[in-house]
Amino acid sequence: MKIKLNIWKQANAKAKGRFEKYELDGVDTEMSFLEMLDSLNEKLIKEGKEPVTFEHDCHEAICGCCSLYINGHPHGPGKETATCQVHMRSFKDGETITVEPWRAKGFPVMKDLMVDRNAFDKIMSAGGFVSIDAGQAPDANSILVGKIDADKAFDAAACIGCGACVAACKNSSAMLFVAAKVSQLALLPQGKVEAKRRALNMVAKMDELGFGSCTNTGACEVECPKGIGIDFIAKLNREYLSASFSEAE
């Protein structure tokens, strides 16, 4: 199939940037979206032109770095898929595909489609961990965790930190990401000890880095490749409010 591409090109973080049009012929419907971009780049290199910079790594939806905003959707078409799982069969022959980087103050564009997602690491360093050495996997039944909590914690832990929630949100809010991280740890005995401090610090960091506040539109959960639901945001609100009203610090 033949496709037209409309891709954001920006030389560096300070440059102005603009959309560049490309045409690509002989695209296989079974190709993944990232392979399609690779073949575009090969073609561009052969022609002596600048290839398009984009991020990818695992190609199996676990690293979270293939952050592309395709035709108005973070991670493109399809439910609960990362960009690396999108295939060209999802597009029509002759279709124009517009590819943009994540747009958020907290995620500045570094080059073309690649953004700086360091902000998420900073939020994690503010409290997304347990301070004690929890050691090896404990013996079965030595630490009891209820089935419901265990399942919920596991669901939250599926977050790959891709930032699609921020990209989808009209407020560029990072609440879904922070909610997943705070909930995952708050639900388990090892993480519960520091739950209050964690919620306070991670939210403070999120605010400081320029992410917007949640207005409950629910756009994030629709685009999240891991199906993290906004019920976790309610949990984060709960954790944060109870921490604010009780923590002395």
Partner: peptide
């Protein structure tokens, strides 16, 4: 809050979001 939230996205998208969310909520 609205003003602050607008500042959180200094540059918008070319294709405005196609994500389903209720009109009222947005």
């Amino acid at each position: 809050i609205t003003l602050k939230n607008m500042k959180a996205r200094p540059k918008g998208y070319k294709i405005t979001t196609k994500t389903k969310a209720s009109w009222a909520s947005k």
